[in-house]
Design a protein around this nucleic acid. Structure first.
Lengths: 178, 178
DNA sequence: CGAGTTTGAGAATGATTGTTCTTGACTGAC
DNA sequence: GTCAGTCAAGAACAATCATTCTCAAACTCG
């Protein structure tokens, strides 16, 4: 009953994720969102409650659709070099691949809910790396360092427009398993 | 001639760097800056021209006082584990150590001048790692990956409030030189 | 068809944004 | 002591911010 919705909620969240991934939370205005999403202001507030609510929905979608699948693929990979290369390449290609980074740098300090989502994404990547390292290799912090390498390379690529991260992380992985 | 300045310009830039490092560029208002710096609004605009001008001054100061010295120490270190551990530890301790990360994630895409400063800082870290790797170890991308590890761990520490990055990067360095 | 309900359209809200203007305080040189 | 020049204090600026309000439009059910 009632007038039917003229927009797809998932498409709206995806478009919002793209905007937030490029300009950040504070750099994206509600006017920007209304214009890019094709969703009316009132509907946006009816569905998501606030700009922050939409941001958290976009971040969660980014985790579910971009980050966690990559983590699963890493955990399932046979070797460490293959896993890291796959992680870097897949994460490079994602359209909203900057959201997790931007959320970590910009929002986590100010928004506990965003911080929890960032924590979830980072933990998933680290758990996956730990799994592929194997039971005999439990040097404390190694998985954290390798996951941080992927994220750091992605950040570097965003900022300086350099090459994709795949080659660099491969060079590191080759040195780890001689 | 003229009325003497009632604030120290370098102290003002340092305080601004601290604010920007925590809240980012868009998350820090001019009112916040005026309140924390103890510098009057008009004087701030007379000296720095704009909020963006003050931000770029803070970022440059962060490079000169925090990033480039760390890069120099890394380049001068004897071994790779020592160099990476020193980099991670020193960078963790810096008061404004989040500025480079935040600039890379938040500002580089929107501000070419900020992007150039980020590029300078990242390049300095990578050059330093390349130097300490030695002439026989020129695997392309390895230095990029290691520098990215330090930055990524720092980002992770900021976001999730985890342990300092020193231990993790040490675990990685130990695996690189058996 | 009409009652009930949900959405879309767009104006309006008050607060906050970055920036500028005006006025008065202080200084060194003449 | 006055004059020119630099700075501080604070109000004021237009623009933009996130959010809400009002009302017409479009659907389902009876």
């Amino acid at each position: 009953m009632g007038r039917p919705r003229a927009f797809d909620e998932d498409e709206a969240v995806e478009a919002a994720a793209r905007l937030f991934a490029v300009h950040g939370f504070e750099g994206t205005s509600v006017d920007d969102l209304v214009g890019a999403l094709g969703v009316h202001r009132g509907s946006l507030y009816k569905v998501f409650g606030s700009k922050r609510g939409l941001y958290l929905a976009a971040l969660r979608r980014h985790l579910d659709r971009d980050v966690l699948p990559v983590a699963a693929a890493v955990a399932a990979a046979g070797s460490l070099p293959a896993a890291l290369a796959q992680a870097a390449a897949a994460y490079d290609a994602g359209p909203a691949a900057g959201l997790l980074l931007l959320a970590a740098a910009e929002r986590a300090a100010a928004d506990p809910d965003a911080a929890a989502l960032v924590e979830e994404g980072v933990a998933a990547l680290e758990t996956a790396v730990t799994a592929v390292l194997g039971p005999g290799d439990t040097a404390p912090g190694l998985a954290e360092a390798l996951a941080a390498t992927v994220l750091g390379l992605r950040l570097r690529g965003r900022a300086t427009g350099g090459r994709p991260a795949g080659a660099a992380v491969l060079a590191l992985a080759d040195r780890l398993t001689p």
